[in-house]
Write a protein that binds this DNA or RNA. Structure first.
Lengths: 222, 222
DNA sequence: ACCTGAACACCGTTCAAGT
DNA sequence: ACCTGAACACCGTTCAAGT
């Protein structure tokens, strides 16, 4: 293999590994085994070097992760054909970002606090669902409305990714089932009404509807 | 101090620490020093016990965090006076949840990948802002619209919290400033147009406007 | 300039034993 | 039933030294 010509003065020891190699190897580890398997030690050994050699190419692990995301975005974000209608153009552009990030679950990691299914939050969910029903929505659409508000508030991606992870790890549906079984229909009538369909309703992908609603709201004359 | 009567059969050794004590102490640590200072070892020593004693009251650290959030929600979520109009009722209920979570920054932790300010994402931001302008919004309102979409897509809370943390750690504004300085006004005219006002515009709190728009969109007849 | 070895100061969790 | 001690299998990062 020919040596590339050295464009800048070759002072000191020639580099054995490059920043690109570090990022590329990190990407392989993350794609193969998930982001929490990416450690500086493993990365070093995979690259055939020592942990400390990495610190000469990235400042620290946090910078490595930022570089990794940047690399990911550059490789996967493709510019779609855009419709002429401005409103639709917004939707398509946002959906493209969403799709790219959704395929990149390691972005989120940790947290999201399950489903905010805490007893004390249910009353608020009730108000939202009931309010949407009072506005003329069907219970099903009302649940979707609540889901959209919660998604776009706490982050649709974050929630779905960790939920999927949870589902893979063990069946923690028991907790949700218990909450719904203990529901008082007098205090929380709407939730009780939809309790049986909650699982299939929340399994549906309603991202685009929620997004369209948000855009509608933004461009509507107030 | 009087011993509480033992309601169930007292077999074996009497407990020295309770689950409530574990959670309460964990809360104190988190409130004082942040969530990543909460370790099983420190929690144990703060409680005057050993790490392994904790595992008799919580299954593992993840369960401890879930319990901690539940405890937090129970203590801070207060039911507000609700307006009669359903649409306003939704807004108030959702805003109450938002407010509680916003005051609880340790929920998020890590990630959010800065601002998705990657070169390759800017084009999409441009399309969104330009589309909103084409719909009749002022550039300022268009930026707010984009911010709302991004917030409600990736999670308003998550973004703001980590942004605030970053600001406290060091001035990483340099990166954003460099991106905006390098902007090509022919390719990304709207972004270039608002580049100078980006910082103050994004510093404004537009949560309620975005939320109202989302609700408007959801209850609007399509 | 770039890399290495050894060490620092930690982690969460398991296992076997004690009371 | 509840708690302890010791150990396992790790972390990210610093420091001083080598080439």
């Amino acid at each position: 293999m020919p040596q590339p010509p050295a464009p800048r003065k070759a002072t000191g020891r020639p580099p054995r590994i490059s920043r690109e190699e570090v990022i590329g190897t990190a990407r392989r580890i993350v794609d193969a085994d998930g982001v929490d398997r990416l450690t500086m030690r493993r990365l070093a050994s995979e690259i055939g070097s020592t942990p400390m050699a990495l610190y000469h190419h990235v400042r620290n692990k946090e910078e490595l992760l930022v570089l990794l995301l940047d690399d990911y975005a550059t490789r996967t974000l493709r510019r779609p054909e855009l419709p002429d209608r401005p409103r639709e153009r917004i939707v398509v552009a946002a959906a493209a970002i969403h799709e790219a990030l959704a395929a990149c679950p390691w972005i989120v990691e940790v947290l999201t606090a399950d489903d905010l299914m805490s007893e004390s939050a249910l009353w608020f969910v009730e108000q939202i669902v009931d309010g949407l029903v009072a506005c003329g929505l069907s219970p099903e659409r009302a649940v979707h409305g609540y889901r959209a508000i919660w998604y776009y508030t706490a982050g649709e991606i974050v929630i779905r990714t960790t939920a999927a992870r949870r589902r893979a790890e063990d069946d923690r549906t028991t907790y949700r089932e218990r909450v719904f079984a203990d529901l008082d229909p007098d205090e929380l009538p709407r939730l009780a009404q939809v309790a049986d369909h909650w699982a299939p309703l929340t399994a549906e992908d309603t991202y685009l509807e929620g997004l369209r609603a948000l855009v509608d709201g933004l461009v509507a004359t107030r």
